[in-house]
């Protein structure tokens, strides 16, 4: 239980995928203009992260490692994630049209999102107290990473809506000021460094 809480806090705050690992910057800058699209995208990302961890973890542990093929993980994971996202899209379209209408446009965007690939890969390098993550812990790690993504997107959507009403110098208008704002938000997340590791003494 303690380990799971530590994993969640680390994934959401101190090791936030967007703001401290700098993965998934493309949707972070591209879809954060409006709050509702930012939330939709983040929920879709969380969903895919958990799902792809569910599938990739057993494949890595029971297929690649026993055959000494761990180095193939990147290629295999990309293949699996891409296929998985497509199947999820088709399934949602058929059985859950409202959810499809809400997430539909974001799902194809996530196929090759590096944050999703990053979660599935980092599940195997991350250790808590020197021990690698178990299957269940990896799933919580993926969930936490998705919630961290959601948090970063919501915070940044708020910052950007403030930027809209600011009188910005012409040379900084558009992407430059967005990048500067993103760097400041990322800087603020440095304050969480070390929080997760020292939660329980």
């Amino acid at each position: 239980m303690e380990r799971i809480i530590v994993i969640l806090v680390a994934a959401i705050l101190s090791e936030n995928f967007v703001l401290s690992k700098f993965l998934g910057i493309c949707p972070f800058l591209g879809v954060s203009k409006k709050l509702n699209t930012a939330v939709g995208m983040s929920i879709a990302v969380t969903f895919v992260m958990v799902l792809s961890t569910l599938v990739t973890y057993p494949i890595y542990a029971y297929l690649l490692v026993p055959n000494d093929l761990a180095y193939l993980q990147t290629v295999v994971f990309i293949l699996i994630i891409a296929a998985l996202v497509q199947i999820v899209e088709i399934t949602l379209k058929k059985y859950l049209p409202p959810l499809y209408n809400a997430l539909g446009i974001y799902l194809p965007l996530i196929t090759t999102n590096c944050a999703v690939l990053g979660v599935t890969l980092l599940n195997f390098t991350k250790t808590i107290d020197g021990q690698p993550l178990s299957y269940l812990e990896a799933i919580f790690n993926a969930f936490g990473a998705g919630i961290g993504f959601l948090l970063a997107m919501i915070l940044f959507a708020g910052v950007r809506s403030k930027l809209e009403t600011c009188d910005i110098p012409k040379s900084l208008q558009g992407l430059p000021i967005t990048l500067i704002a993103a760097s400041l938000v990322a800087l603020s997340f440095l304050g969480f460094a070390g929080v997760a590791g020292n939660l329980f003494g």
Binding site: V75, I80, A82
Partner: peptide, 9 residues
Amino acid sequence: ILSVIGVLA
């Protein structure tokens, strides 16, 4: 392994 996964997907 790669082809099997690819074909299956």
